[in-house]
Design a protein around this nucleic acid. Sequence first.
DNA 1: TCCCAGCGTTCAAACGTTTGTCCAGTATCA
DNA 2: TGATACTGGACAAACGTTTGAACGCTGGGA
Lengths: 199, 199
Amino acid sequence: MLTTPENDSRSNLIAASTPLFAEKGFNGVGVREIAKAAGANLSMISYYFGGKEGLYAAVLNQQFDTLKPVLELKEIDGDPMGKFELYLRATVARYRMNPHLLRFYTGELTNPTPCFESIVKPAILGVVQTLLDTFSMGVEQRRFREALNPADAVLALAGMINFYFLLEPATGELVDQAPERDEELIRHIMEIFGKGILR
Amino acid sequence: MLTTPENDSRSNLIAASTPLFAEKGFNGVGVREIAKAAGANLSMISYYFGGKEGLYAAVLNQQFDTLKPVLELKEIDGDPMGKFELYLRATVARYRMNPHLLRFYTGELTNPTPCFESIVKPAILGVVQTLLDTFSMGVEQRRFREALNPADAVLALAGMINFYFLLEPATGELVDQAPERDEELIRHIMEIFGKGILR
DNA sequence: TCCCAGCGTTCAAACGTTTGTCCAGTATCA
DNA sequence: TGATACTGGACAAACGTTTGAACGCTGGGA
């Protein structure tokens, strides 16, 4: 197998199957549909990936690699609240840049394939652990109220931003979810997470 | 078609297919598997529901009917913050009572079937609208900070609680998500939503 | 009381299609 | 000549749906 960047059929298959898998789920797409979309022959899926599952795993690996930069939040310095804002900003940017990631994310959580244990779960645990570390740093520095459960707090933060995008197909016409409002959204979530909604 | 509560094959099919659809998705289950689980003949699916899609629609209708009590938050009186707490409590209780609902919820959001527009989306919009009304009541009563975007705020609240359960398959061993902790979880989310995490 | 038609229900079998995988063979270039 | 990339066709298995016969039951006429 060549690993040149111009290995057409191989990379075309990954690129073409990504939106299909994201929108229809693993079982919702057929190999013929994928091959046609990629302009490749049907057999190339088995040839390069050993089968449909292998192609799906390759797609998932590519998708969840984009979560790795979050882990670097540990190394950089800055106050914990600033790190949380960096996390929010990176998450929004990631979803805007790659509109399919969230679907693989939640799709694997709800209907896990064998890839869940090997690819998805480790990626999620890494992010959650990083947020947990950031939170306990804030507690050590006596910036956060120590009465709060760290896990509840960081899952709340992650939930606010992820659920916002997850609900988009249902709330799109009720709520303005244009990218232009992203900065405002981040500011509001930071306000709620920091000070709450009460006057 | 009889509508007696003891219409065995019909109700057995709904009951048996609910966990299957929830865990594997619509395309992940075959009609033979469903029929075997229900102890019914293959043909009963077409006979009672007109096909696999009809059975799925019946399951989804039953599932999302459990969201309707949320709409009654409008009628009851009480301060808005208390209503939000009722919403949290009802949501947790609903997920504990019916562990499949969340999977249909997010499954339809990520990989919508024709049922999404007719069943899922209206149900979600109803809940969000109810929360929006509750929030603006709080702003009118000058209890909430009016600088916040109502949609961002209520989606944040809904995200905190829903995402917590959604992530369970991934974070189960890192975070204690036992039902015994539910009351504590609700209290923490209410604290974060009301006052934030800052000291 | 008997019979049978009619009903809702259930059944095994078969339908035609689509599924994912595999294989023999070709083309191209080192 | 051997290795790599690719092709079209074939394969068995699984898919959702349909069919036609049979079941148990009920109500009405003889």
